[in-house]
Deep mutational scan, measured.
Amino acid sequence: QRITLKDYAMRFGQTKTAKDLGVYQSAINKAIHAGRKIFLTINADGSVYAEEVKDGEVKPFPS
């Protein structure tokens, strides 16, 4: 399943989102408010992988 960072954070909370991605909650808040195009893939085992689309390139998040 693929979902935006904002939607994932709204569904699970910023604290869990940060923990799942290995970053601080403040980084999640800042990324959402900056309007960054970050998409999360939720794997069947429950693990989460995030990618950011920037300038036409897709890069892992966090980099």
Rank of each mutant, 00 (worst) to 15 (best):
F39W: 13
T17F: 02
K30T: 12
A27G: 05
G13I: 01
F39V: 07
T17D: 01
N29H: 14
S63W: 08
A50T: 02
G13F: 01
A27M: 13
K6I: 10
L40M: 09
V23C: 09
G35N: 14
L40A: 03
I42Y: 07
S26Y: 11
T41C: 08
I38G: 00
I38S: 00
I3N: 03
A31G: 03
P62S: 04
A9R: 06
K30G: 10
E52Y: 04
S63R: 12
N29D: 13
A34F: 08
I38M: 01
G56R: 07
I32V: 06
A44V: 12
D55K: 09
I3C: 08
A50I: 03
F61Y: 12
R36N: 06
M10W: 08
Y49M: 11
P60W: 05
T4K: 08
F61I: 02
I3K: 03
D20R: 06
A27R: 08
G46K: 06
G35D: 13
R11C: 08
D20A: 09
K6W: 10
A31L: 14
K54T: 14
A44Y: 11
F39T: 07
T17I: 05
Q25Y: 09
A31K: 01
V48R: 03
G22F: 04
K30D: 15
G13A: 01
D45V: 05
D55G: 12
T15F: 13
A9S: 08
I3F: 15
Q14F: 15
G22C: 07
S47Q: 08
K30F: 09
K30M: 12
D7A: 10
Y8G: 00
K16I: 05
G35W: 04
R2N: 07
Q1G: 13
L21T: 03
T4L: 08
Y24R: 15
L21P: 00
G46Y: 05
F61N: 01
A18F: 02
T15R: 14
I42A: 04
G46I: 02
Y49P: 00
L5W: 01
D7V: 06
R11M: 15
D7C: 08
R2L: 11
E51D: 07
A34G: 09
S26W: 15
L21F: 02
